[in-house]
Design a protein around this nucleic acid. Sequence first.
DNA 1: TAGATTGTTAATCGATTAACAATC
DNA 2: TAGATTGTTAATCGATTAACAATC
Lengths: 207, 207
Amino acid sequence: MIPNLPSKTIERLSQYRRILSSCKEQGKTHIYSHELASLLNNTAVQVRRDIMLIGHVGTLRKGYDILELLNRIGEIIDSEDVLKVALVGVGKLGEAILSYFTGKNTKIKIVACFDVDPNKTGKEIGGIKCYPQYNLKEITKRENISIGILTVPNNVASDVANLLIEAGIKGILNYTSTHISVPENIYLEKYDMVTSIEKVAYFVKHS
Amino acid sequence: MIPNLPSKTIERLSQYRRILSSCKEQGKTHIYSHELASLLNNTAVQVRRDIMLIGHVGTLRKGYDILELLNRIGEIIDSEDVLKVALVGVGKLGEAILSYFTGKNTKIKIVACFDVDPNKTGKEIGGIKCYPQYNLKEITKRENISIGILTVPNNVASDVANLLIEAGIKGILNYTSTHISVPENIYLEKYDMVTSIEKVAYFVKHS
DNA sequence: TAGATTGTTAATCGATTAACAATC
DNA sequence: TAGATTGTTAATCGATTAACAATC
């Protein structure tokens, strides 16, 4: 049974999982909430609460069983079948994502990338086949891709997003600084690097 | 006078500014809250509230004066002097940031980047001088750099963060998936790409 | 005036933290 | 037992949204 979880808890589960995996590799079998918390700059209470929300229980003496907890987190955030992802726009950021993400999650797989530059299309980039962008809709549909990552230039972001939506995509991760609008059955996540830097600058200035 | 603003408002001010700039370039002189909202996928009320918080006032007939609003936002989020930034780790992500950010904000300037690879050091990358990483502390101090962007491999993230802190940096933007901990007078912002994708995947699965 | 807009307070919603009972 | 831990509710904090007065 999968409970309805707050957005922030989902983010932390993703982080817990990676920490737990590396603990497991170091041979640890159990972990206390305060240990997990200190590896993540958050509090033991929050860790316990998140773990409570996903319905896992620990033991008073030894804390949480790492293997069990990993499995439970997997049940929650992984999909049963592999979720296919397409990345559009193989500039530097696109390439960085392609090479960085590959292999990080066995249930989420970037299966195609697209670009307009004929020097890129036809090759494999970071191990992923690069297709010409005019085939975007066709291939996305055919491959049943459900998530699109947008790393195209700002001025084409909306058009590309619309193509992805027409092709039946269910979620978009938008790295451009263009704001796109999507129908409400489509999940949209945006990240803007310039805003991040400006935010850091603001709080640096005010401290 | 600069009021104390919520973190989310700061993020939106950064976004408003870019939208407003492009409106200005198109020759618009005034904008209504609902127009600004629809360009950003948020609500007119929130726009008005944010603008209220920074102490700007609009007119009932014409909405907000774009130029005035731009100036006011600048007063709030820009620093008086140029804020210097260093980027450490010139991989693909680092390069993407260097070339993308340059010129986006006149008050925040990436003045140096660092890498361990001798093929990169000594050159300019995206217009920014690349120094050998063993000079990190010395140059950061000398140049009075106040923000560090971390795009190094995970395994050296903590060490590099500590060097930056020793060199007197005031804020860190951490793009690695390593969690670093900093003294509380240092502002830390983290972005993790894998978490973002996993989050999109979760909500796609649950819709 | 009627309609569209801004400005602002109060209510609601969501997320974190405090408090503490239960247990080994 | 004393001390350390988990699990959970209630309180608090922060952010968004609803409601509406004021104005052109």
